[in-house]
Amino acid sequence: MTSIGTGYDLSASTYSPDGRIFQVEYAAKAVENSGTAIGLRVKGGVVLAVEKLVHSKLLVPGANRRIQTIDKHIGMATSGLLADGRHMANRGRDEAASYREVYNSPSPLKIIVDRLGLYAQAYTVYSSVRPFGLSTILGAVDKDGPQLYVIEPSGVFFGYRGAAVGKGRQLAKTELEKLQIGELTMRQAVKEAARIIYLVHEDAKEKEFELEMSWIGDETGGVHLPIPKELQQEAEAAAKASIEVFE
């Protein structure tokens, strides 16, 4: 059945007769219109990359970051409503801090994802709130090694070796599947991530964009940091070259 005009799609607390919650599906639509974000879980670490669409040339390049830091060892890339992304990140920081407060050690990513999943779910149950218009990729290196998860607007989450959300996720997933992700080093992963974002962007023929990347792992001493300038430039140059070959 269609959703529009039935009245069953006006609240997160309403099921449609066939058992769907349209408000959550609409929230997912907000993600589909937004720049692609990907994550790779590789040997010794995690790499995050975001296709940051540039809506004005007056924007300061490099500012306005879309990849955020949750704890020393946890990074987060979002696709969807930017402001919702900050809300989710703030909650993530609170959860990570509270885990440290209680256990005096850095939290496993699983715990944070679990709590954020519950948090997102709570916004799908009441008519007094709307769901998060957000797909969240979380990456970390914790006591069990590199981890990568995605949380959807519905609150469900899965662990991944390669993850993609946002507008270009289909193509990005296809590209990720071609890789031997487990065999990549972090540096190789950075180049692959850059290539995929460039490829996805090229495919959609969108307005200007900026590539934003970060990593956590052996290369950074287990801390979530932006990719160093030289490596970023190198990766972008290689990505641009590969697109031209592709054409």
Binding site: D9, L10, Q23, Y26, V31, N33, L81, S128, R130, G133
Partner: peptide
């Protein structure tokens, strides 16, 4: 403001 449009707009 708690309603998404079918296009995911607010």
């Amino acid at each position: 403001n708690t309603v998404f449009s079918p296009q995911g707009r607010l």
